[in-house]
Simulated assay, not measured.
Amino acid sequence: MPINVLFAAHEKRWAQYEAPLRTALDEIGVAYTLATDLPPAEVDYIVYAPNSPVQDFTPYTRLKAVLNLWAGVEDAVGNPTLKVPYARMVDDQGLTQGMVEWVTGHTLRHHLGMDAHIVNPDHKWLPDAPPVASDRPVGILGLGELGSACGQTIARLGFPVSGWARSQKQIDGITCHTGTDGLHAVLRQSQILILLLPSTPATENTLNAETLAMLPKGAFIINPGRGPLIDDDALLAALDSGHIAHATLDVFRVEPLPQDHPFWAHPRVTVTPHIASETRAPSASRAIAENIRRGEAGEPFLHLVDRDAGY
Rank of each mutant, 00 (worst) to 15 (best):
I3K: 10
V5Y: 06
H10T: 09
P20I: 00
L21C: 01
R22Q: 07
R22W: 03
L25F: 02
I28F: 04
G29K: 07
G29W: 09
T33L: 10
D37W: 06
A41H: 14
V43S: 07
V47Q: 00
A49H: 07
T61D: 10
K64T: 05
K64W: 08
D75A: 13
A76F: 04
G78C: 11
K83I: 15
D91W: 03
T96A: 07
G98D: 06
M99N: 08
H106Q: 12
H111C: 12
L112S: 13
M114W: 11
M114E: 14
A116L: 12
H123M: 13
H123D: 14
P127E: 10
P131V: 03
V132N: 13
D135K: 12
D135T: 12
R136Y: 11
P137Q: 01
Q152G: 04
R156F: 04
V161L: 06
G163I: 06
W164P: 00
A165G: 07
R166T: 10
I171R: 04
T180V: 14
H184I: 04
L187K: 03
R188V: 11
S190Q: 01
S190D: 00
Q191N: 12
I194P: 00
S199E: 14
T200N: 04
E210A: 11
L212A: 02
A213S: 12
L215S: 01
I221T: 05
N223E: 08
N223Y: 02
G225Y: 04
R226T: 08
L235A: 10
D240I: 07
G242T: 09
F252N: 05
V254Q: 15
D260Y: 06
P262A: 07
V269G: 08
T272H: 13
A276Q: 06
R280F: 15
P282A: 09
S285I: 01
A289I: 04
E290G: 04
I292P: 02
R294G: 01
E299P: 05
H303Q: 08
D308I: 15
A309F: 14
G310K: 00
